[in-house]
């Protein structure tokens, strides 16, 4: 019986967002007096997978069948179920993502597993199995008991701060039989903003709203983001107006982020926007209107014109 962690693979290595899941899974294993095994699906470099050991897992199962290179929620759920059976795992851990959302829901259906989503802390095993989940889009938390025999935990970013060691995990090939029926969904194309820092994974985020007046003014937002090594985000009207791509919009109906630093520029702070960002560790608000509601949710604020303030901040970051 071990704890199984679904480790998402990108560019041949385990995604940064999954490192937290590895560490979290290893911690849960420690609490349960067992070991943690990671499962990596799709083509990946063996040395990169062995590095999962740094986060406390002892073994990595690698399902490298070429048919699995394209993320496919049905096939991935089947492979995870097979790996759980192989390891006798009753607890399965993942980082929440657009991929794992679809995969874990199917796995819950397949294994009749209790799924805790948006988990923000280690479980409480003192009497049953309880997790703390973020609900109402970040506006509250629920202590939820996972009552089924098999439990799935999908953690929110920043649920745990990994501590790395120099340990390496052993990597084992894992080749369960694949089922043709799992492959009826065909991926016919993909566009990805390459090189850019992925918003859900980012530690630092610079976000801009309708206060910027038009897409031609995003240069100063990008300058600050680049200087900081931050991802860029925006409010909903900005993506509705097509000033920025849809996947940059944060909030109730957009991406939910919980970075260490969220800098909101020219965003009023509507409740639906706050919902997606209020679990950020530190929030900075820059707005020319001192009455903007966002200041009430901020740790640091500057009342001023974004067109003047942002270049000053960029220069200050470069001078660090």
């Amino acid at each position: 019986m071990s704890v199984l962690i679904f480790a998402e693979v990108a560019d041949g290595a385990i995604r940064k967002s999954s490192q937290e899941a590895l560490y979290y899974g290893a911690k849960v294993a420690e609490m349960m007096g067992t070991t943690a095994t990671a499962l990596a699906i799709g083509s990946a470099n063996t040395d990169a997978l062995a590095a999962a050991g740094r986060f406390g897992v002892t073994k990595v199962l690698h399902a490298a069948d070429g048919a699995l290179n394209e993320a496919n929620s049905m096939a991935y759920a089947s492979v995870i179920a097979a790996a759980a059976a192989h390891e006798g795992a009753k607890v399965i851990v993942t980082a929440k993502s657009t991929l794992s959302d679809g995969v874990m829901a199917r796995l819950s259906g397949k294994m009749k597993a209790a799924l805790g989503a948006n988990v923000t802390d280690l479980p409480d095993l003192s009497n049953g199995f309880r997790v703390m989940s973020s609900i109402f889009t970040g506006k509250a938390f629920a202590v939820t008991e996972l009552k089924a025999d098999v439990k799935i935990i999908a953690i929110k970013k920043n649920a745990i701060v990994p501590v790395e060691t120099a340990a390496l995990a052993t990597v084992e090939a894992f080749a369960p039989a694949l089922n043709d029926a799992d492959f009826s969904v065909k991926i016919t194309g993909q566009t990805k903003a390459s090189g850019a820092i992925s918003l859900p994974e980012a530690d630092l985020v610079v976000s801009a709203g309708r206060g910027f007046k038009g897409p031609e003014n995003w240069g100063i937002v990008e300058d600050l983001a680049n200087a900081l090594g931050a991802a860029t985000a925006c409010s909903k009207p900005v993506s509705d107006l097509d000033w920025r791509p849809h996947h940059e919009h944060v909030g109730q109906t957009g991406v939910k982020v919980s970075p260490n630093l969220y800098i909101a520029c020219g965003i009023s702070g509507a409740i639906q926007h706050l919902a997606g960002v209020n679990s950020s560790k530190v929030i900075v608000v820059i707005n020319k209107d001192p009455e903007a509601p966002f200041f009430k949710a901020a740790d640091y604020g500057i009342v001023g014109d974004v067109f003047e303030i942002l270049p000053k901040l960029t220069a200050a970051v470069k001078a660090l």
Binding site: V143, E145, K147
Partner: peptide, 10 residues
């Protein structure tokens, strides 16, 4: 399969 025991506000 799951049940909520209690809630908290941030």
């Amino acid at each position: 399969l799951t049940s909520v025991d209690s809630y908290e506000l941030p």
